[in-house]
Structure formats: C-alpha cells, structure tokens
C-alpha cells in the first residue's frame, strides 16, 4: 500500500488487511466486517492457496458482485488504481493482465 501511495498518491484506494495470528474463521470475519464497513467489491490476495483467498472465496459463496484477484503484485495494484472509470470487474481483469506482463526474470546469471 505504501508503494502505491508513493507512486500514485492513491494508496487510500486500498484497505490493507492483515491475517496474521487469526484463524480461518477469524480472517473471514474480518474480511466480511471490512467489506461491509467500506463497501469493498474487489479483493486482492497473494497466494491462490492462502488463507485470505480461502476466506474471500467463502464470502463469495453468499455474496454477489465480489471480485477476487489472487497473486496480486505491485503492478496489478497500480493498474487497478488508474482504471477508476471502469467497472470493478473490468478494472480488475485489466489489472491482472498488467500484473502478468510485469513478471520477468532478467540477467544472465
């Protein structure tokens, strides 16, 4: 979030959420609370197997209109920030494409 803020000045587009020291149930409760409080429609998580991903998928079972982006990197978040005129789903899908392109291994070592 701090990198998004430093680069774009729009770090407040995202609501950071830590899953540290929480059970799966606790993570889900926290995500649901924040989603209700802030009207969150798009969730960015790290690992497809991660506990946050599992928790959001549980929420998607009974909540419509939620978009989940797994494997998010900085490029993904930056692209999403600048697509604020698109629907959340379109912005998320474009952000995913940008995040994929950004991944590269460079050097001859």
């Amino acid at each position: 979030m701090s990198a998004v803020e430093q680069i774009t000045g729009f770090g407040n587009v995202f609501i950071p959420l830590s899953n540290s020291d929480l059970s799966g149930e606790g993570i889900e409760d926290r995500i649901r609370d924040r989603a209700t409080e802030f009207g969150i429609k798009v969730f960015f998580t790290d690992l497809p197997a991660g506990s946050a991903t599992i928790a959001v998928r549980r929420m998607m079972r009974d909540t419509t209109g939620i978009i989940l982006v797994t494997g998010a990197n900085l490029a993904t978040l930056l692209e999403f920030v600048f697509r604020d005129e698109e629907s959340p789903g379109d912005a998320a899908r474009h952000a995913v494409e940008k995040g994929k392109i950004a991944l590269a291994a460079q050097g001859d070592g």
């Binding site: 059970s23 799966g24 149930e25 993570i27 790290d46 690992l47 197997a49 991660g50 506990s51 599992i54």
Partner: peptide, 12 residues
C-alpha cells in the same frame, strides 16, 4: 492447523 489448507502448509 485450524486454517487447514493455506500458504504455510502448501508452500511453507
């Protein structure tokens, strides 16, 4: 592990 399948298990 009360989270069952998650990053620490699958990757860690």
């Amino acid at each position: 592990d009360d989270r069952l399948i998650h990053g620490q298990v699958v990757v860690g």
